[in-house]
Simulated assay, not measured.
Amino acid sequence: MLTQTTSRVLEPSDLDAALAVLDREPVANAFVASRVQIAGLDPWRLGGEMWGFYEHGMLTSLCYAGANLVPICAGPRAVRAFADRARRAGRRCSSIVGPTESTALLWRLLEPHWGPAREVRSHQPLMVTDRLPADIAPDPYVRRVRKDEMETIMPACVAMFTEEVGISPLAGDGGLLYQARVAELVGSGRSFARFDEHGKVVFKAEIGAATDRACQIQGVWVAPEHRGKGLAAPGMAAVLRYALADVAPVVSLYVNDYNTAARRTYQRVGFQEIGAFTSVLF
């Protein structure tokens, strides 16, 4: 038995213990939990390492270190241990993202070594709901995107990502990883859209992470020429209907605090704030 605090890279044999930590906060941890449930803890399949923090021989906290650096159920001592490991390894991620308290501390410890960031989004409300809205009918034209519609949905996904993140997902590798991710969501039936009479995307959203306890909606986007027409709330209600019926009993999302229009839409559909995320973008 370990008698003091320590951290190490987890191995496939640590899977049950890691899942137990992730299950402590199923909504906040949905993104990482969904990956671990599918890929386990093998770094090649997971797309990154999983770091574990131990106190008195018990695994109490995690940190996913892949394309994103994500602290999980991490108190100050765990965050300091993860920051030390991240500093020694050097920055390999494109962002740090997670619950505000742990993520903000992690960034304060890493900023002298990794900074400056391209952007810090310090307060992104985490919102959840477990029911359909009583007063907003789901848009009947929002449906699952078919596999043969990849060429149609892809430009909308690129436009959403570029608008949201500030850089194109096609940079670097020419968009191969991003296209594979979009194809994965379409293939798994977790990409939704409304198309106009010409086959162009009017509204879209994806269920980007899913476990048996919670799922997370992402990539919500309305084509610029259709904004202000009241499409977002019925569209979200439609995606929410699919999510609750087919995926998980609780649906979450997080949103930039300055995006007041989006926050009002989500509140209209029944989402309530339960916490906040912070994102550090490089």
Rank of each mutant, 00 (worst) to 15 (best):
V222L: 04
R227C: 05
Y242E: 13
G208P: 03
S122D: 13
E25V: 07
D84S: 15
G57P: 01
E111D: 14
W44R: 14
E55N: 06
Q124S: 12
C215V: 06
A83H: 06
L2R: 10
P249E: 07
G275Y: 00
V145S: 06
A28G: 02
W114H: 08
G98I: 05
D139C: 10
D84P: 02
G75Q: 05
A67R: 11
V280Y: 12
H123K: 00
S7V: 11
R213I: 01
L22K: 01
L185S: 02
D14C: 09
R121F: 07
E163A: 13
T3W: 10
V202A: 13
R88L: 15
L244G: 06
F195L: 15
T100P: 00
R108T: 13
L19E: 07
T103I: 07
G48H: 09
V21I: 11
V222E: 00
Q218F: 08
V32W: 09
R146H: 11
F277K: 01
D139S: 13
R194V: 01
E206T: 14
G75D: 10
L22C: 06
V128K: 02
S61F: 09
A205S: 13
R35K: 14
E164V: 10
E11S: 14
A233Y: 06
R91E: 08
I72G: 05
A276K: 02
L109I: 06
G48A: 05
V9G: 03
W44K: 14
E101I: 08
L62S: 04
I153P: 04
K229D: 06
Y178F: 15
A180T: 10
D23L: 11
I96N: 01
A17M: 12
E151A: 14
Q37T: 03
R118F: 10
N256Y: 07
P138E: 07
R213D: 05
A183V: 02
H198T: 12
P71Y: 04
V280D: 03
G199M: 05
A117R: 07
D14E: 07
G115C: 05
E206W: 07
L110D: 05
Q124A: 11
E184M: 12
M58P: 00
Q216L: 14
R194D: 02
R241A: 14
R143V: 07
N256P: 00
E206A: 13
V142Q: 08
R190T: 12
E273M: 03
M58W: 07
A65I: 03
